[in-house]
Design a binder for these strands. Sequence first.
DNA 1: TTCGGATTATCCCATAATGGGATATAGTTG
DNA 2: CAACTATATCCCATTATGGGATAATCCGAA
Lengths: 83, 83
Amino acid sequence: MTKSLHSVSYASLLDILVAARHHKGLTQQVVADKLRKPQSYVAKIEGGERRLDILEFVALAKAMDIDPMTLFADVLRGIKKET
Amino acid sequence: MTKSLHSVSYASLLDILVAARHHKGLTQQVVADKLRKPQSYVAKIEGGERRLDILEFVALAKAMDIDPMTLFADVLRGIKKET
DNA sequence: TTCGGATTATCCCATAATGGGATATAGTTG
DNA sequence: CAACTATATCCCATTATGGGATAATCCGAA
């Protein structure tokens, strides 16, 4: 684990993303396929190895069959709790 | 204008960010100051020269005194219209 | 129109982030 | 342990970013 997150909030964001995927019972591979990206793409995002921009966030939510707005709300709640 | 946007949706996102700032009557410098970043940081974001991750998006919204959720909703509407 | 200040866009380029196939690890199940 | 399945890492050529300096635009006043 050589990787360090950008911030506490960022860690919270990642936790939420992973939890959401697990909640849906999806694997990184399945999500990656929907996004037409390699599994390492999802792994890196969830591991804080790669950042997500807004549109990618929306795409990721959709790939997980989650409403972007709902996921964003979760993220906001998460980062408020931390920090 | 050597720069090309990543996608149509991205252009829409940028339009929304700029419009929001103008609506609030703020300059890039003022927003940048609140974020403790140079003016070029904001200029690059708005020019599609630099991408915004989720947390930066939230920070930017707050710097413009806009509710992140509201701004995100605007973005979602914007990218649906396009594409 | 022209001038000058305010605002925004570009330059430069060393440094850091990313893409993605291959491979190593960790986790599960029998 | 064996055999899978799922996730994390490697590697490293490409591409993106940081930010001070400077150029280019905008815009209202005279």
